[in-house]
């Protein structure tokens, strides 16, 4: 399997009036061709910012990538020229966003917006691009696609819009599709449809996917590997079955414990994790999860654990073995 993406030590900061926010603190992960990686975490943990940083979509006055590499097919995205990275965006790496209502331009037709990447990257003329757009829309399940090219985003329902967004991302046949919480804004039945659609498309087109979500339930069926993020860092990364069966990081444990499960017979109370996620104002010297961790030891106060491999397909960033309650 060829590796197409290798992110190493990515650090992103935001200047705010109150100080510098360290949104991403040394994130590293790899991705192979055709592979699906899930990134899971709660709001504010830095999952969206990481991938946006990678593509240099972070607005630059407040935000800035201060360290790290993002090697795509061997070339560092962070060091590319503006022109170069523009050729990557939308052509080789495409994004699907969370809220298809606000992420579509309300005054341009769907046809125009969906066909746009073809015009830009493939130099197609309008007629051909529109034809392709119609085909792609059909592929994602929009009925009467050709007529609907002249419609506007607000004329579609939520689920349909998200399909269109996906079509728009896939029209150039990218190598990597990044989906940033694509189903969060949809209701459950539509969510399932979208997930199913993506699975089908993945089979047909074979692109790699990074799927960002805070919903652990969804990721199980989609991803091969999952990275769990907290406080701007990846705290655990494992193949999905392994993670669910054997969560090693206290946060992961807490997350999984807080999932309502259908196969549970007893009506146990959902365990929630006490405390609030950190503000990330200073670069944490201690473990970001310290304040909420029930397994904390002294070492956790003085040093932020790095991701260590426990086994070939399981990494964790923690000093303590939750099974034993003592340091590794």
């Amino acid at each position: 399997m060829t590796e197409i993406l290798s992110v190493q030590g990515l650090e992103t900061q935001f200047r705010t009036r109150e100080g510098i926010v360290h949104a991403v603190n040394g994130v590293s992960f790899n991705l192979d061709e055709g592979e699906t990686l899930g990134i899971v975490g709660e709001s504010g943990c830095g999952k969206s910012v990481s991938v946006m940083s990678m593509l240099r979509l972070i607005p630059s006055p407040p935000g800035q990538v201060v360290a790290g590499k993002a090697l795509y097919q061997g070339k560092d995205l962070l060091k590319m020229t503006d022109d170069e990275i523009r050729h990557v965006r939308g052509a080789q790496i495409s994004m699907v966003f969370q809220d298809p209502m606000t992420f579509f331009n309300p005054v341009l037709t769907i046809g125009k917006q969906v066909s746009e990447p073809l015009e830009i990257h493939n130099g197609m003329n309008k007629k051909m691009a529109y034809e392709r757009a119609a085909k792609v829309l059909e592929m994602v399940g929009i009925p009467k696609a050709k007529e609907r090219l002249e419609d506007y985003p607000h004329q579609f329902s939520g689920g349909m819009r998200q399909r269109v967004m996906i079509a728009m991302a896939l029209i150039t046949n990218p190598q990597l599709l990044i989906a940033d919480e694509p189903t969060t804004a949809l209701d459950v039945t539509i969510q399932a449809q979208i997930v199913e659609l993506v699975q089908r498309l993945r089979e047909e087109l074979g692109m790699a996917i990074i799927w960002i979500t805070h919903d652990l339930g969804i990721i199980a069926g989609l991803a091969k590997r999952v990275a769990v993020m907290y406080g701007g860092c990846i705290v655990e990364e494992a193949e999905v079955k392994e993670l669910y069966a054997n969560p090693m990081h206290p946060y992961t444990r807490g997350l999984l414990g807080s999932l309502p499960r259908m196969d549970e017979s007893d009506h146990r109370r959902l365990v929630s994790i006490d405390g609030m996620p950190p503000i990330l104002m200073e670069k944490p010297k201690s473990c970001p999860f310290l304040s909420r961790c029930t397994y904390a030891v002294d070492h956790c106060k003085t040093e932020n654990p790095a991701l260590k491999s426990l086994s070939p397909n399981h990494k964790v960033a923690c000093w303590v073995d939750p099974n034993t309650g003592r340091e590794f």
Partner: peptide, 28 residues
């Protein structure tokens, strides 16, 4: 607006982003 991010993510040059996506909305 969010759709500006979408436009950039599609690989449009900043110039095109402003002209095609921002202006028609801003000028209303």
């Amino acid at each position: 607006q969010d759709y500006m991010t979408t436009a950039r993510a599609k690989g449009l040059s900043e110039n095109k982003v402003i002209r095609r996506h921002a202006l028609p909305n801003a000028l209303i």
